[in-house]
């Protein structure tokens, strides 16, 4: 009984990763469906600078995209680790490969987070004040194309 209590919450054997893989997977099914819908099918197939920067200026979308990014990278990293554990059993190559997998995910996380976070809300204010002539032109030309 004491042994059982001592182990609760440690998740060291892989139970936490197993559950999180399924939770992130479910999140991603929803997120990817919406991602495809808005970025590939409802916008006429073309992704433009304006669309992306306008959307990413909003803190709500920044948060959504960050959650999306973390889910993808956890799910991808854990997927790689599952494959490594299935086929590589000697400790040395296994530890190296698992570390490389998470290193790749961390690099991608940093890259993605910087992209999402550093798009300034000032862009939105410029639009509201109508001072960014280039932005208005771009929107008008997009309106013409539509």
């Amino acid at each position: 009984m004491l042994k059982m209590l001592a182990r609760t919450g440690t998740g060291s054997g892989g139970s936490n990763a197993w559950v999180l893989q399924r939770i992130s997977g479910l999140l991603l099914v929803v997120a990817l469906f919406l991602h495809y819908l808005f970025l590939h099918f409802l916008n006429g197939g073309d992704v433009t600078w304006n669309e992306v920067t306008t959307r990413l200026a909003s803190p709500l979308f920044k948060t959504i995209d960050l959650i999306f990014l973390v889910s993808v990278l956890f799910h991808a990293g854990q997927g790689l680790v599952i494959n490594i554990h299935d086929y590589i059993h000697r400790p040395a190559p296994r530890v190296i490969l698992v570390s490389l997998a998470w290193l790749l995910m961390i690099v991608l996380l940093i890259t993605g987070t910087v992209t999402i976070v550093t798009l300034e809300p000032g862009f939105l204010q410029e639009m509201q004040m109508g001072q960014a002539a280039g932005v208005i032109d771009a929107i008008q030309s997009q309106g013409v194309a539509l």
Partner: peptide, 21 residues
Amino acid sequence: DKGLGDRIDALDNKHGLWRCH
């Protein structure tokens, strides 16, 4: 049976339950 605590190390393991796909 009350032995889950005795078995859990073998089960909750990279060679245990989680290799089942």
